[in-house]
């Protein structure tokens, strides 16, 4: 009778282990044997081969019999310490334990080179493994789609924040960076630059000359700002420069004067020397979190003051007294 049962178990449950009255393993399925190969499992004490993790504190035959029908958690007593789950049923004076991999199955098929023949015919382990691979392939395809969509979105955004004529950032991009600087509460400066004689060039020499002059301005602003600064074209002949980390008046004055010296040199359209100059208004944000619109209004007011003082001047917004 018991031989019949083990013949049946070896087909139905290739991961079963039968334990005799002395706690020794008397019979086991081929797949569980494979986990210990080349060591033979039959003849060993159950506790020598398996560490019973749950129920906690239970041990040996008595522990297994007491846990009859309930869920067991076990660990192989060998270097890989593979986790197994199981269920025990008292059988004669001993017990039969059926084991399974649970979530450790992905590691187990790799560690023990298990094949479909190692699982019961009705086990859905193979379908699970299949599903894991199929899903990761499908996810990879979805991820590629997402990446391409994201790439397209970034390209569209880049186009939307770049002034198409000059390649400088536009007002929207500038406002976004300014907002970030305000949020960061780090010292920085806002410089508003206005070309004094742009309109006469554009009107008198034509749009081509106006465009060439703009390209010249972009070049100058690019050369006079650092990588981390931002130069934006916010209007026809209006530019805003943001200087992260610079809050010293002296340094900002130097920068403004350098820009004005560059613009003081005439720009040639063919043989025609176009005289331009720049007026500059500056405000300094010292980490006091004045909101972006206030800073822009301050820079604009300083620019107005600079223009009022004459061509090619720069002026600072007068900081309100500290509170």
């Amino acid at each position: 009778m018991s031989d019949d049962i083990f013949a049946l178990l070896s087909v139905f449950c290739p991961m079963h282990v039968a334990v005799g009255a002395q706690g020794q393993i008397t019979y086991c399925g081929a797949s569980v044997e494979k986990l210990f190969a080349p060591t033979r499992l039959v003849g060993q004490q159950f506790d020598a081969a398996f560490h019973l993790i749950r129920p906690r504190g239970s041990q040996g035959l008595a522990g297994l019999r007491a846990a009859q029908g309930g869920g067991l958690q076990l660990e192989l007593r060998q270097p890989r310490r593979t986790r197994l789950r199981g269920v025990a049923v008292a059988f004669g004076p001993g017990v039969v334990v059926n084991l399974g991999f649970g979530l450790s199955i992905l590691d187990a098929v790799r560690d023990y080179t298990l094949s479909a023949a190692d699982f019961a015919r009705t086990d859905i382990a193979i379908e699970l493994l299949y599903l894991v691979e199929a899903k990761s392939a499908a996810m990879a395809a979805s991820r590629r789609l997402n990446l391409r969509l994201q790439g397209a979105r970034l390209a569209a955004e880049e186009a939307a924040i770049t002034d198409s004529l000059t390649g400088l950032a536009n007002r929207r991009a500038m406002e976004r960076v300014l907002e970030r600087l305000v949020q960061a509460r780090a010292p920085f400066a806002v410089m508003q630059v206005d070309l004094d004689h742009f309109k006469p060039v554009n009107d008198g020499l034509g749009h081509a000359a106006g465009d060439a002059l703009l390209a010249h301005v972009v070049q100058v602003l690019g050369q006079e700002t650092r990588q981390d600064d931002l130069a934006a074209r916010v209007g026809g002949d209006e530019f805003v420069l943001l200087f992260a980390g610079i809050a010293e008046r002296a340094r900002l004055s130097q920068i403004a004067e350098r820009i004005q010296r560059r613009f003081a040199q005439p720009f040639y359209w063919g043989d025609v020397a176009c005289k331009i100059s720049a007026s500059i208004g500056i405000t300094i944000a010292g980490g006091d979190a004045r909101p972006a619109p206030v800073l822009l209004a301050e820079a604009d007011a300083a620019l107005y003051a600079a223009k009022h003082a004459g061509r090619a001047q720069h002026a600072f917004h007068l900081a309100p007294p500290a509170q």
Binding site: L106, V109, R110, D111, T113, L114, S115, A116, I126, L129, E133
Partner: peptide
């Protein structure tokens, strides 16, 4: 063919 994808099973 090994069940484990890219596994050591050869």
């Amino acid at each position: 063919f090994a069940l484990a994808a890219g596994g050591a099973g050869g």
